[in-house]
Design a protein around this nucleic acid. Sequence first.
DNA 1: GCATTTGTGGCTT
DNA 2: AAGCCACAAATGC
Length: 148
Amino acid sequence: MKDEAFSYVSPLGAVSYRWDGKVCRAVHLLAAAASAPRGHDPVRAWLDAYFAGGSAPLPRLAEPRSPFQSAMRAALLAIPFGETRSYGEIAASLGTAPRAMGQALGANPLPLLIPCHRVVAAHGPGGFSCGPEWKRRLLAFESGSTGL
DNA sequence: GCATTTGTGGCTT
DNA sequence: AAGCCACAAATGC
């Protein structure tokens, strides 16, 4: 299968994702702008809807590497738009340790699609795989889109 | 109140 | 199998 790398230029930055025509295999948040987006795929539709300030049904994502990531994905998707959960909350929800959550989230191949940016530390901003600025940007965006 | 240490469970190599 | 980690809660100061 040919997983093509698409680039989506969002108001918050450039997002690169891999779409093989059926499922979204990976998502990567870039630091700088990239080439103009070109394909018509559910991923792009979702991104468009998301950055429009709303939520949309996720495209078909690649299956998680482990069952745990599946649960983690569900737990993350359960977080409402514009809200944030702590690692401890998610960890407790999954019945695991907070540290495992950090690793699992960090190993998450599909950031943004899976709202891992909505997961913050209990007493701090936490971290982000694709750069803390993205997390901050996304949270600020969601915060402004909802209550404003 | 802030700094350090330990407990913890999954992920990467 | 061993090391690493995007945390949290409990001490120590």
